[in-house]
Amino acid sequence: MSPHPQSKKAKAAKAKRAKARTTQEPDKPASMHEARLERQIEQRRHQARKGRLRRIRNTALGVVALGVVAGGGWLAFRPDPELAGVARPSNRGGGHVAAADYDSPTPTSGAHDARAPRCGTYREPLNPAMAVHGLEHGAVVLWYDAARPELADELIDATDEWDTHVIISANTGIDRPVVATAWGRIKAYDAADPEITEFVRTYRQRGPERLTCDR
């Protein structure tokens, strides 16, 4: 049976309940404040993690971009390959003249004939002034001793993989079986050996004017 509302026991129970509410209610705002602080701290941690990841990503992208630029620069300015034993005579310039004069039977640069030769094989000596014009267009000229006509066929076989920018010509003024020339490059050989193929592969189409020259 419940105590009478006005009894001492009822009053004591009511006072106890009120005291309990008074004791608990101040803790509620404190708990809410702590929860808000924890959320703010977690948000700051999350933002910090995102910032670190963003910096790492940007650094990685920067390294990749730098590598691409450096690689592209290296490709753009990479020097052309050179072969051992290939001489590099002084560049005597270019230009067209009516009559050219050279100090070598196998010139590699200089003023030259206005007519450019067709690439191919010349069993009669090609005019050196026309040959230099061919060199200017990126052709390789392989001179062979006119006293050894069989060298022409050997040089044709050695260079049959190229349809353009190769000239093979007899020459009466050389003292070696074969003299290979390109613009600004020259090397003599004792036979139509495989090294001549490498000369053609390395120096073909490296003249100052890279124009068509079909064989």
Rank of each mutant, 00 (worst) to 15 (best):
T121S: 01
D27Y: 11
G71V: 01
E38N: 11
H4W: 09
R55S: 12
T106M: 04
A188C: 04
A60E: 14
E195V: 03
G71Q: 05
T108C: 07
G110I: 05
A98I: 03
A76W: 08
D103C: 03
R36T: 04
V140L: 07
T164E: 14
V166H: 05
G95Q: 03
R17P: 01
R49A: 14
D113A: 12
A10M: 07
P125I: 07
V63W: 09
R44F: 03
R54H: 06
F77N: 13
A182N: 07
G134E: 06
T59E: 11
S7H: 06
A48P: 01
Q24D: 05
V200R: 00
V132G: 00
G95N: 09
K16T: 10
A192T: 09
H33C: 00
P208E: 01
E42L: 13
G73K: 00
A158C: 06
G207C: 03
Y144L: 07
W162Y: 10
W143I: 04
D145L: 09
A100S: 02
L66G: 06
P89R: 14
I156V: 15
Q205K: 13
D153N: 12
R36M: 12
T106F: 01
R52H: 14
G67F: 04
P208K: 08
L53N: 07
C213N: 11
V97P: 05
D193F: 04
L83Q: 06
Q43M: 10
N91R: 07
P79N: 13
N91M: 09
W74I: 13
G110W: 01
T108F: 07
S109Q: 10
S90P: 00
P3Y: 04
C119S: 11
Y122A: 02
C119P: 06
D160M: 08
E154D: 13
W143T: 08
A152R: 06
N58S: 14
G134Y: 09
P81Y: 11
W183A: 06
L151K: 11
T159V: 10
A147H: 11
